[in-house]
């Protein structure tokens, strides 16, 4: 019984962490699918979400909801500027060059945030209290429910957007075949910009909802970005359920690994599984060879 309770706790903790990875993974996948680049500044969008919310809350004295809107909006604008100033001007750059640019961008964003707001870790108050909730002998916090809720909303939102709106369909068209999409009159450039907008918004939202739990500082984006990237790889870089499952599996395995095997090998276990997947199923866990990529 004792062990069972423990395992329940491991799984619930893992799912909560996994949802965060899933959200970040999704925002990786969205940009990858419309541009073919992996945006290594994704973790910085996550960090900006948290840091800007705290700034709006404490310095601008906005209420929490308004602070979140401001943070997501500002991050989205930064995403747009990023695409306009650093990605678009390079007409025929190879994906590799673009990836290096995103790395440069991530260092730049981190540096600017460090200079503006210092290096201290800061915490956001929890959205609805910190009284733990007991579920089947395990406990979780109200904030975890927020994380689950927002993750589900974002997944459903993405699904509706990509399958049922003109813009979403156009973005999918770009990911299938840019040239053909261009020929039928889709502005590929605009779709790339769109992808940055969505991805920055989703990333920063993830940053906002986790800030009360994990706290935030100028450098939290690196590790979160890396874990989100793992989730996306496990899901085969799709923006659908694959990535979400990838994130949840990663989070649960980490937690179970830390709890049942050894906490010293927690990250090693996660990355070992990532390597295994890359060797055995490089197309991702849930994909049948090359199909759609949105």
């Amino acid at each position: 019984m004792e062990l069972l309770n423990q395992v329940t706790q491991f799984v619930i903790s893992g799912l909560a962490t996994g949802s965060i990875y899933a959200l970040i993974g999704l925002s990786f996948a969205i940009i990858f699918n419309s541009t073919g680049i992996i945006n290594f500044a994704q973790g910085e969008f996550v960090m900006l979400g948290g840091v800007l919310t705290i700034f709006s809350l404490n310095v601008l004295q906005l209420p929490l909801a308004a602070a979140i809107v401001v943070a997501v909006a500002v991050t989205t604008v930064i995403g747009i500027l990023f695409e306009r100033l650093a990605i678009r001007p390079l007409k025929n750059a190879t994906p590799l060059a673009l990836i290096i640019i995103t790395i440069g961008m991530s260092i730049l964003i981190r540096g600017v945030v460090m200079l503006l707001w210092g290096k201290d870790t800061q915490a956001l108050p929890a959205f609805s209290g910190t009284d733990p909730i007991t579920v089947a002998g395990a406990t979780l916090l109200p904030q975890h429910l927020w994380i689950f809720g927002v993750t589900v909303m974002v997944i459903v939102g993405c699904r509706l957007f990509f399958n049922h709106t003109i813009s979403g369909k156009a973005m999918r068209a770009c990911s299938f075949n840019r040239r053909a999409a261009n020929l039928v009159g889709i502005s590929v450039g605009r779709m790339v910009l769109f992808s940055f907008v969505i991805s920055a918004a989703v990333g920063s939202l993830a940053g906002v909802i986790i800030a009360p739990l994990t706290m935030t500082a100028y450098d939290v984006g690196v590790m979160l970005g890396l874990k989100g990237f793992c989730a996306a790889i496990m899901g085969g870089m799709g923006s659908g359920l694959g990535t979400v499952l990838g994130g949840l599996i990663l989070g649960t395995l980490e937690s179970l690994g830390a709890g049942l095997i050894s906490s010293g090998y927690k990250d090693a276990i996660a990355f070992f599984i990532l390597l295994l997947i890359l060797f055995i199923r490089p197309q991702g866990l849930f994909k049948k060879g090359e199909t759609e990529r949105v």
């Binding site: 491991f10 903790s13 986790i210 739990l213 690196v222 590790m223 980490e254 937690s255 906490s263």
Partner: peptide, 10 residues
């Protein structure tokens, strides 16, 4: 950089 230590604490 860990964000959740509930497994260890459990």
């Amino acid at each position: 950089k860990d964000t959740d230590m509930t497994p260890q604490l459990t």
